[in-house]
């Protein structure tokens, strides 16, 4: 296959996976939130259980007028959703679904993931600034402030994994977790990093990931009851859809990263390595589903924190803990 054909195939595959998973996640959120709140949720769309509701919503948004406020900086305003959705998309490039099922296995995979995923904040800031709306502006600035709070703990948490694995390539991190840890009665037992002492790192990573995704309890940039949806206030139609899809795609992407780094990615103890190219994607998706459910569960249980409380939490607890975690990972690595 020529280079361009492969590239095209990969792009289509990533797009399909991302959009498909985002729609499934939206549906899951609609249904789970409804039942947690003693509601039914979508019921009629699609004939059974309202499975077509996300599609119907998407179609509705596509028909809507694409409004640009008169005073908005229209170029930046139009560009912002693309930045967000591209950031959500690009993360998928390095996530391994199986030993050879990876779009591009970068040596600096972990670094790439962190760099690209924080791009979406740039899009949010652009949207907030360009909307010419005070609520949007506050929302955008809150997102920027939030970036300072969670980016460092996120980095420190990933760093500990990198120390323990001795590599930054995500495929190799999974491979390290799939290696036998110790042998009991002739059966080699492997364990993901969360079992091998990374429980603190996993917790920090999840907290920071939720902050990056601006979901409750850290949804201050959106904060419906305060800022009337913050940077999203002025968006409508297809651009809003892009933000919306981007949000859910990054949610799945962050869960996939967390699963890869801490939960063993596509590998599962007991599954023979030869079948991983077939079983691997499903194993990963199962782990992703677990983490996505956790995020949905948080969102519909807890209230929102304040921006300064997030900062205090990040700087007073998460960063010292993250540093401690690196030290622990080092000790673990040297001793074992």
């Amino acid at each position: 296959m020529s280079f361009w054909a492969t590239l095209g195939l990969q792009v289509v595959a990533v797009l399909a996976v991302m959009l498909g998973l985002a729609l499934v996640t939206i549906y899951a959120e609609l249904k789970i939130s409804a039942h947690m709140q003693s509601r039914i949720g979508p019921y009629y769309a699609g004939g059974r259980w309202g499975w077509a509701q996300p599609l119907a919503d998407g179609l509705k948004f596509l028909q809507k007028e694409d409004l640009v406020p008169r005073l908005a900086d229209s170029t930046v305003y139009r560009l912002a959703p693309y930045v967000v959705i591209v950031a959500a998309l690009a993360v998928w490039v390095v996530i391994p679904f199986g030993p050879s099922l990876v779009v591009r296995d970068l040596d600096l995979g972990a670094f790439y993931v962190l760099a690209v995923s924080s791009l979406s904040t740039l899009g949010v800031l652009m949207a907030g600034w360009a909307s010419a709306n005070k609520y949007s502006l506050i929302g955008g600035l809150r997102a920027a402030a939030q970036l300072i709070a969670y980016e460092l703990p996120l980095l420190l948490a990933v760093l500990a994994v990198v120390v323990q694995a001795g590599t930054m390539s995500l495929s190799e991190i999974v491979a390290v977790q799939a290696e036998p840890w110790f042998v009991v009665a002739g059966v080699p037992i492997s364990a993901p990093f969360i079992v091998k002492g990374q429980i603190i790192g996993f917790t920090i990573f999840m907290i920071a990931a939720i902050a990056e995704l601006s979901r409750i309890p850290f949804d201050m940039p959106i904060a419906e009851s305060e800022l009337t949806m913050g940077y999203l206030t002025e968006y409508s139609g297809i651009r809003f859809t892009m933000f919306f899809l981007g949000e859910y795609a990054s949610m799945v992407a962050m869960s996939a990263i967390a699963a890869t780094l801490y939960l063993g990615g596509y590998a599962l103890p007991g599954v023979p390595a030869a079948t991983l190219n077939v079983v691997g994607p499903f194993v990963l998706l199962g782990k992703v589903a677990l983490l996505v459910f956790l995020m949905i569960w948080f969102r519909w249980t807890w209230p929102r924190l304040r921006e300064d409380q997030l900062q205090a939490m990040a700087w007073r607890w998460l960063i010292p803990l993250g540093l401690l975690n690196i030290v622990l990972a080092g000790i673990f690595k040297v001793v074992l």
Partner: peptide, 16 residues
């Protein structure tokens, strides 16, 4: 009140 603080679930429970 919880809704204003960002928690949406008590809304439905109390109204129920």
């Amino acid at each position: 009140y919880p809704l204003e603080l960002g928690a949406t679930t008590p809304l439905m429970w109390a109204l129920r």
